[in-house]
C-alpha cells in the first residue's frame, strides 16, 4: 500500500528539501512507500484532504482542528519548543510605534495562513481594529508582505515569526516589530489519518527517538526541527479548545 504525506504550506521555503529527505528517511525506517505531496497553497491542500488523499500530515493548528474533529485524524508528535508565533511589523520610519497607534482604515498585508491571520487579528483588538474596519491585501509570501510595507502600500503586515526571523538582516532592519505573540500553546502537529492508523504507534516510536537514530539528527536539522515531543490526543484536544476560544 502506498501512503501520501503532506506538509502545511506555511513551512519556510528553505526547508522544502528537508521534508523530501525526511520522507525518504521515514520510508527506509518503516519499509513502506510514502509519496510526499507538497501544495502551493492552503486551498489546494484542503481539496486533497476533502478527497481523502492524505494519510500523514504536518498540519498547522487551524487545520489540525478540522482534521481531528471532522476527519478522524490522530495527533502523534509535535516539534520540540517550536510554537507558532506571529509578528506584526511596520516600516522602521513609520509613525506607528505601537498597536494602539493604529486607526481604522489601516492597510494590512498578509498571506492566507489561517493561524497567522487569526492570531494577528487578535493582536489588533486593543486598537479596536477588526476585519470590517481595516483594508486587507493578501499576498503569496512573507517577503512580499515586507515589500508591500517598504513600498508604502501597506502600513502593517502579519508574519509567522519563523518566517520573519528568516528574512535577511537588511529586510528586518527596514522593519519595526509592533508586537510579537508569546502564546506557546499553539503548535504544528504531525497527524495520522484513518487509513494509516496501523502505522501510528510505529511512526510515533521512531520519531520520538529520531535524534538518536542513524542520520536522524541531520534530517531533523534539514527541517529546522530540534526533535519531536509526544502529542497525546488530549494535548491536541486542549489546543483545539484553545483555538475555539479564539474564533468568533
Amino acid at each position: 500500500m502506498k501512503y501520501t504525506m503532506t506538509v502545511s504550506p506555511d513551512f519556510p521555503l528553505d526547508h522544502i528539501a528537508g521534508w523530501y529527505i525526511f520522507n525518504t528517511w521515514l520510508q527506509v525506517k518503516l519499509g513502506i512507500n510514502i509519496h510526499l505531496e507538497l501544495y502551493d497553497n492552503f486551498d489546494l491542500q484542503r481539496e486533497a484532504i476533502e478527497r481523502g488523499e492524505i494519510d500523514i500530515i504536518y498540519a498547522n493548528p487551524f487545520d489540525a482542528s478540522m482534521l481531528i474533529r471532522e476527519k478522524g485524524f490522530t495527533a502523534i508528535v509535535k516539534p520540540h519548543a517550536r510554537a507558532d508565533e506571529v509578528v506584526i511589523a511596520a516600516a522602521i520610519d513609520s509613525s506607528i510605534e505601537a498597536i494602539e497607534d493604529l486607526n481604522p482604515e489601516t492597510r494590512l498585508a498578509k498571506t492566507n495562513d489561517p493561524d497567522v491571520n487569526m492570531i494577528g487579528m487578535i493582536m489588533l483588538e486593543p486598537a479596536n481594529l477588526n476585519a470590517k474596519n481595516i483594508i486587507e491585501e493578501q499576498v503569496d509570501t512573507h517577503i512580499l508582505i515586507a515589500k508591500r510595507i517598504f513600498s508604502g502600500h501597506a502600513d502593517i503586515g502579519f508574519f509567522l515569526k519563523d518566517s520573519y526571523d528568516s528574512l535577511s538582516q537588511f529586510v528586518r532592519s527596514q522593519l519595526q516589530v509592533l508586537v510579537s505573540s508569546q502564546i506557546d500553546d499553539i503548535t504544528h502537529t504531525l497527524l495520522i489519518g484513518p487509513n494509516a492508523k496501523d502505522l501510528q504507534e510505529e511512526i510515533q516510536s521512531i520519531l520520538l527517538n529520531m535524534q538518536d537514530l542513524e542520520k536522524g539528527q541531520g534530517v531533523l536539522d534539514s527541517m529546522g526541527i530540534k526533535s519531536w515531543d509526544i502529542q497525546t490526543q488530549e494535548d491536541a484536544e486542549f489546543m483545539i479548545d484553545l483555538m475555539d476560544t479564539l474564533v468568533d
Partner: peptide, 11 residues
Amino acid sequence: TSVRRKPSRSK
C-alpha cells in the same frame, strides 16, 4: 477552558 486576551481601552 478560559482564554483571556488584551482588551481595548475604550471597551
